[in-house]
Design a protein around this nucleic acid. Structure first.
Lengths: 121, 121
DNA sequence: ATAGGGTTTGAACCTAGGTTGAAGGTCAAG
DNA sequence: CTTGACCTTCAACCTAGGTTCAAACCCTAT
């Protein structure tokens, strides 16, 4: 498959695929006699996997480090669970931080509303 | 006060103050006869305000748009409450998104744990 | 043979919020 | 009168994840 075809199939842009290759997130593509990249259908699944992982909050750097090992040494189920658990903790921390922000905003709003009420006496 | 003094007093770097001035977050400083920036003590409070607002999730762009009006037309209490309420909603949305991410991660972990349990039969 | 669509490369651009560095001017103390 | 600590400007660099552009090549249909 040519780059445009696989991009269409996976719902990503061609520039993104080239960018992933440049960054080492995906392996360099095989080339046809004209120099065009030639992809196996498998790559569609990989591209979708990348999008999913990003959606869960994994960075491309993190995804790449898993990808690298999916060749000769695929990551074990236990390892995957470990990575996911770590990411869940990070998301938890993010949520806690955002909730703290929200609390501070709310208390600021209350303060302002009170001072507004007082000024209307 | 010279830039280094005020930076120290407010707990920010000098480069940050110059950056804020360049970006229009703070007004251009008065200059002494030697060309050095000369700040009034008030600016300490403003710099602290900026840090606080950032901590609540406001971007410099948002802070600047409020700052601009704090000269001739300071923003009203009601306006401030409006901005805060809007930001709280944005934080709420962020939290909801993060919680959805967390749910997806958790269900993925459960899936993997089950498949691991099955493979140990 | 020429128009169009797809592909190649590399480099520049974008947001956000700064930091770092170079080259030079200023000021106070010893 | 020199050293060290400040200050000035402007420009380049950084992260993350890409997009956009220019110049050139390839392939197919008319």
């Amino acid at each position: 498959m040519k780059i445009g075809e696989i991009a269409n199939a996976a719902g990503v842009t061609t520039s993104r695929i080239r960018f992933y290759e440049k960054r080492g997130i995906i392996a360099p593509a095989a080339r046809g006699p004209n120099g065009y990249r030639d992809y196996p259908e498998d790559l569609i699944a990989l591209l979708r996997f990348i999008e999913q992982a990003q959606g869960l909050g994994f960075t491309l750097r993190e995804i790449a480090s898993v990808e690298v090992r999916s060749g000769p040494h695929p990551i074990s189920c236990a390892e995957a669970i470990g990575l996911l658990a770590k990411k869940r903790d990070a998301v938890d921390a993010l949520i806690a931080e955002a909730e703290e922000r929200k609390r501070r905003i709310d208390s600021l709003i209350s303060e302002l509303q009170e001072s507004q009420a007082r000024s209307e006496d």
